[in-house]
């Protein structure tokens, strides 16, 4: 087993470990994500139809509506949320959703951004650990 460590910038300081669900396309949570099922529903997104629940969700960046935080919070309320989120560019809108989820529901969703090259190196189905102690992602292959 090999381990690759990818340094990350932590926007929500928390940890988790799980399978990766990745899309190369930017996503708008509002209009592109169904919080009842934790599913990507934007037909323009390569991962359309996939569920992110219980997985570590990788998408390069957020686009579109400022309702993102509420949709993420609703997903937490429904327990359909991803375990963690990894981006290349993390928007404050998304981080806000995670911070409120912690206040309202006591759920921690780590949010980390990494360099584009590191992002390219992680694939759908990979096993990833988000490790706040070392400030990095640990990719197991």
């Amino acid at each position: 087993m090999t381990e690759i460590t990818v340094p990350g910038e932590f926007y929500v300081e928390a940890g988790c470990e799980g399978e990766v669900i990745k899309t190369p396309d930017p996503i708008s949570f509002w209009g592109g994500y169904d919080p009842a099922e934790g599913r990507i529903i934007d037909g323009r997104n390569e991962a359309c139809g996939e569920r992110v629940t219980g997985k570590i969700f990788l998408f390069p960046e957020g686009v579109g509506s400022s309702t993102t935080a509420a949709v993420l919070l609703e997903s937490v309320r429904n327990s359909t949320h991803p375990l963690g989120i990894v981006n290349v560019r993390t928007e404050p809108i998304l981080v806000t959703g995670a911070l409120i989820a912690r206040e309202l529901y006591g759920v921690e969703i780590p949010i980390v951004s990494i360099e584009a090259a590191g992002f390219e190196g992680i694939d759908d189905g990979d096993w990833l650990k988000i490790d706040p102690e070392s400030g990095s992602l640990i990719l197991r292959g």
Binding site: E74, V76, L104
Partner: peptide
């Protein structure tokens, strides 16, 4: 403020926050 729109998708979460 945008968090005041009770919508089909995320209304309950928004309401929970507002009431808090």
């Amino acid at each position: 403020i945008d968090a005041n729109s009770y919508g089909r998708v995320s209304g309950e979460a928004k309401l929970a926050f507002a009431q808090k």
